[in-house]
């Protein structure tokens, strides 16, 4: 049984979607490992990046591994600005991220 929770957001993440984003990036307590799929995200404003950072902190506090998939160079650049490249395990495609999370579960 796969115990990887997938959270997927697309498009431009900005303050107008704050509620949607903070709802998506919320731990329910049943996650064992999380894949945040931002493959189709091209932009995130500082509010959204702050939400992502808060989510990372919450997951860390519960010892839940998080992998993030980034498909666009623009978004990757914003992640680099925010210093999140080091805070997250980043993948360019979903398959690699899932493999990583599966491995982190069995180990």
């Amino acid at each position: 049984m796969s115990a990887i929770t997938v959270i997927r957001l697309t498009g431009e993440l900005e303050i107008g979607r704050k509620d949607e984003i903070s709802r998506a990036l919320r731990l329910t307590g049943s996650e064992r490992s999380i894949l945040v799929d931002f493959h189709d995200v091209t932009y995130a404003d500082s509010t959204s990046l702050a939400e992502l950072l808060r989510f990372r902190r919450d997951a860390d506090a519960h010892g839940i591994p998080v992998a993030i998939v980034i498909g666009s160079r623009q978004f990757a650049r914003l992640i680099q600005y925010a210093g999140l490249s080091d805070a997250f395990t980043v993948f360019e495609d979903r398959g690699a991220a899932l493999t990583y999370l599966s491995a982190s579960q069995t180990s």
């Binding site: 500082s46 990046l49 702050a50 950072l53 902190r57 680099q80 600005y81 925010a82 210093g83 999140l84 490249s85 080091d86 805070a87």
Partner: peptide, 10 residues
């Protein structure tokens, strides 16, 4: 170059 977390984050 750039890249560390925002202030007040952690």
């Amino acid at each position: 170059d750039c890249g560390s977390l925002p202030l007040g984050a952690l």
